[in-house]
Design a protein around this nucleic acid. Structure first.
Lengths: 190, 190
DNA sequence: AATCTAATTAGTTATCTATCTAATTAAGAG
DNA sequence: CTCTTAATTAGATAGATAACTAATTAGATT
């Protein structure tokens, strides 16, 4: 269920320490000990909280020599925070203002007789429609290993790597250590 | 601390049942039993969750005969959901694009020699500046009984009732059964 | 006043979680 | 290879909380 992602987000940020970490990381990336120092908590505690923030994908890490710097993904944070405001609006993916007829036409233009894509549209608007179409065959909540997601995409186009990357980029799915999962519709697009 | 309000909000909505209630109430107000029925839970459980949603002020109730209808305060929900996105931006109350000099000038225009307000400005922008000024003397986190808040406002202007109402309306403070409390800056304005 | 119905409160249980200390792992630097 | 430092995992504890059943309160309606 797609609600769960939103629930997980709010559970994750519904904690004073974690909000303080978010506020800190907004200024600049920091390493664990620095965060622990600034908040007056021990490193294991910070580790615990960072794990939760990484789980919902609003914090990521980059290693530099011996120390790991934690970064805030502000973009994702904003999208997740906004999701609750669009809860009931199930048909809210008209943000693009594209009618179903128009989508249908675009899809037909790009598909050959066997349902495979002739090419990947260069125009963003069209590309999003194609991506949305492909992604709609994925099962919500199911975790797809990379191999399986590649196979799935290949039924539409051979260049699964490009398409997979675009799906992530436009937040149709998300990747977690090699596994892929469909995002809730609230997160799709932009 | 003002963080706490944001924490309370996310804790409150970080629950599947409560998100489902929010989604339901987005369509229309409902009474307790109706919610219980739709969600397949017992009335006490719904009562429990509604209490939490009322505590953060995104749900209110109106009685009609024997049954109580619960309404969603979508406006407040949106403001609270947005607060996390503005966390670090402490100086983010420049949304009005008013410089400190300008504020100072406006304040002086409306204050008499003893620091009391000559009148309440009709123009929204100016009124907000005046309200902000008054509210800045309140202690964050402190709970003010109505009598005390009235006294406080009277130091600026005798019409404490109007000003108090405006402070609530513009989210400088919030009211909870007769007591008043300063809101975090993130919630001020609009 | 007596009764009905909706909502809340009390009390219980099972689950979850924030934090700590201690132990372990991971990666450089000598 | 050994040492050092940063981060994580393990394990423990205290506190919170979602759900239920049973009991109570709060308002209508008769």
């Amino acid at each position: 269920m797609q609600l769960n992602r939103i629930v997980r987000f709010h559970k994750a940020v519904g904690d004073k320490t974690r909000l303080r970490i978010i506020a800190l990381l907004k200024n600049s990336p920091l390493h664990g000990q620095a965060i622990a120092g600034k908040l007056g908590l021990t490193p294991p505690t910070i580790s615990h909280h960072l794990t939760k923030l990484k789980e919902i994908d609003i914090v990521y890490q980059r290693r530099d020599k011996n120390t790991i710097y934690f970064h805030l993904n502000e973009d994702k944070l904003n999208r997740l925070a906004s999701a609750i405001m669009k809860l009931g609006d199930d048909e809210m993916n008209n943000e693009l203002e594209v009618s179903d007829e128009e989508k249908y036409k675009i899809l037909n233009n790009f598909k050959d007789s066997e349902g495979k894509l002739r090419s990947i549209p260069a125009q963003l608007k069209k590309r999003l429609i194609i991506l949305e179409h492909m992604v709609e065959g994925l099962e919500p909540g199911k975790v797809y290993p990379e191999k399986e997601i590649n196979e799935y995409i290949k039924q539409f186009h051979d260049d699964f790597a490009t398409i997979r990357r675009e799906m992530i980029m436009h937040h149709f799915m998300s990747r977690e250590n090699g596994n892929y999962e469909l995002n809730p519709r609230e997160l799709w697009l932009i």
